Computed example of a mutant assay.
Amino acid sequence: MVATVLHEIPLQGGDVTDGVVRVGDTVRRPASTSTPSVHALLRHLEAVGFEGAPRVVGMDEYGREVLTYVPGATGLRAEIVSDEALAGLAVLVREFHDATAGFPLTLDGWEGGSNDDKAPEVIGHCDLTMDNVVFRAGLPCALIDFDLARPTTRLFDIVTTLRHWAPISDPVDRPAVLRSLDVGERLRLFCDAYGVLPRDRRRLLELARLRFHRSYTAMRTRASAGGNWAKMWASGAGERIRRAAAWLDVHEDELHAHLV
């Protein structure tokens, strides 16, 4: 057990997990059914030398998981939507996917939810919002909050990431700093930096549409159980997904032109 002896500082950001605090150089998070699998993954990443994730310290006397604190900044800021930041994120995601090679794809305890129909290839983070990427000096250096990580395809995790970072969404739902971005160019930039294969580029928008459909259904189901998922749904999350899907339908041809 890891004893709590320092002052707890609540950490903001994210939509689902309450009770995340910083204690000295560690982060304490409520444990969940996925915690054993996530800890196994994080220990694997440490063993293979992947530097872009927190390390597992253990559990504290309150049954919370204890991870190392990754210094830097998270959240939406103007400097993190640069081309350099997006390319850096693509490289970091590629390095993360490559680092999961050899990790078992059949462990129990992963969170369910929307996914690709193809056989899993890697462990995907599956929740790379601006709150879950740590930046230093305007460039991404680490991924955090692996609660929704699970076996999936590379392309599914890429699509999930681009949903937020391109972003694939109706401009009415984008923060001001993202509203005027050239989404097609950012799709191409990310794919180039990651090294997405031509066959996957051709399928990217199709999978994005499938993800919208399944995300809507999964979120509605989770919201029915109450808690923070219900709060997100009540705040209009379902409507935002529907608008993003409709926006994709209208702009699919011009976006696809950047991917061929």
Rank of each mutant, 00 (worst) to 15 (best):
L143D: 01
F212K: 01
E111S: 08
D15E: 10
D157T: 08
D157P: 08
V122Y: 01
R55Q: 01
M1P: 10
E111L: 07
T217Y: 08
V20F: 15
D15G: 05
E51K: 06
L148T: 12
V48Q: 07
A73Q: 02
P120G: 10
L89N: 02
G13E: 00
A225N: 13
I123N: 00
A78K: 08
H97E: 09
S82D: 04
K231G: 12
V27T: 03
C126Q: 12
E206V: 10
L207K: 11
G238I: 02
R222C: 02
I123C: 06
A193V: 11
G63K: 04
V5Q: 13
H258P: 04
G113V: 00
T4I: 15
T4N: 14
R211S: 14
R22H: 04
D108N: 10
V134L: 02
S37H: 05
G14P: 03
L178P: 11
S37T: 02
G238P: 04
F96Q: 09
V2Y: 07
G236D: 01
I241T: 09
R163E: 12
R240W: 09
A218K: 05
R29M: 11
A47F: 11
S37E: 09
W229P: 07
H251Y: 14
G102R: 02
D249Y: 08
Y69M: 08
A40I: 00
E252P: 11
R199T: 15
I9L: 15
R203M: 07
E84T: 03
R243A: 09
D25I: 01
D173G: 00
A99N: 05
M232W: 02
V81R: 02
L6I: 01
R55P: 00
E95A: 13
A53R: 06
D98K: 05
V183F: 09
G52L: 06
